[in-house]
Design a binder for these strands. Structure first.
Lengths: 188, 188
DNA sequence: GGTCTCGTGTCTGAATTTCAGACACGAGAC
DNA sequence: GTCTCGTGTCTGAAATTCAGACACGAGACC
């Protein structure tokens, strides 16, 4: 199926999101801009948050589904931020007006997904304990989470990849080395 | 209404047209690339030519509907060729494989539409006879038609506007002056 | 010639989607 | 307080999309 109307509704929503913040966009706005019956919106979505949730899920899903080798963290991050870079202003409006709890949860989920893939690929069989693996994954995820949050709060004014690499080299790499682990960042 | 599926079918068709010539594209190809039931295609279109016809009509319609002053012929032409420029390879494949009769008829229609608007705007009230107006419009339309056809046959390798301007200055302008008419081409 | 494959155009009937129109509810403006 | 406006829900009709089948013609191949 993959209803074309759903596609169009989402596209329209993102378009409106380029123009004004999330909390100034109503379901009515969307369906009118889209030329669609209001009931049709509710046929596909329970409410507006449900639409947002689907959009975020799709982006995360798109990233997670990609069974990459995560050869470099930088590459994965580039991939992960495709959505933000594609919808720069939209992301800004979302971040500054959407329910922060929901957003944070998804951001953290995303960071864990990135961290997990990356860490697993560099750890290989070096660490036996699952607890240690989890700890290292979470450590990486939170560092990433912090970098992204700082970037979003700044209004996405600087190159987040550049910034993250700096943090990584200053903090993460030494910590990993301390554990006898070599990162693959220098490969990139 | 403006069925989103129709939109998607047309988009898919143009996409395929970028890849291979018209006569190598079947209805089956389109619906499969589009992920749509074959019957749904026939619900919207009688057959493949009907889809092409609609596409061409839309482009011409889009141009004709624009109630411009046609201040310069060049500007109108730029507008008129937006479709060709947008779908360069597609246009090439269409021109080189579609039923030439149909294509020519539409091309001529398009040229007349351009010529009519332009000529009317430069003629003003200077020529009383409707016959004369028609003759001048047709003259312009055919010159335009010729230029475009030559351009298409060359594989759209050169700048058609540049070429047309040359023809215009060499042939059309003198002819118009002979009739005591001044063109507005020099304004541009 | 014959047969086989494949895309076409058409049909039927079911399932799904989109629609118009109405309703009660709550929030915010005034 | 009323009034407006968007919401979320419901109903039933209309439109769209679907699966599945059919006969037909063109082209490949033997």
């Amino acid at each position: 199926m993959a209803s074309f109307m759903k596609q169009e509704i989402k596209r329209t929503f993102l378009e409106l999101l380029e123009q004004r913040p999330f909390n100034q966009i109503t379901v009515k706005d969307i369906v009118e801009a889209c030329g669609v019956n209001r009931n049709s919106f509710y046929y596909h979505y329970a409410d507006l948050p449900a639409l947002v949730e689907e959009l975020i899920d799709e982006e995360i899903g798109r990233f997670v589904r990609e069974e990459r080798s995560f050869s470099t963290l930088e590459e994965s991050m580039k991939e992960a931020f495709a959505f933000f870079q594609e919808h720069r202003r939209a992301a800004y409006h979302v971040y500054n007006s959407v329910n922060r709890d929901i957003f944070d949860r998804y951001l953290m989920k995303s960071c864990e997904s990135i961290g997990k893939g990356y860490v697993n690929s560099i750890l290989g069989d070096t660490v036996a304990s699952q607890e240690d693996r989890k700890a290292i994954i979470h450590f990486n995820a939170y560092v990433l989470y912090g970098a992204v949050t700082r970037w979003l709060e700044s209004g996405m004014t600087y190159d987040v990849l550049e910034d993250f690499r700096r943090v990584f080299q200053l903090m993460v790499e030494p910590a990993m080395r301390q554990q006898g682990l070599s990162t693959k960042l220098e490969d990139s």
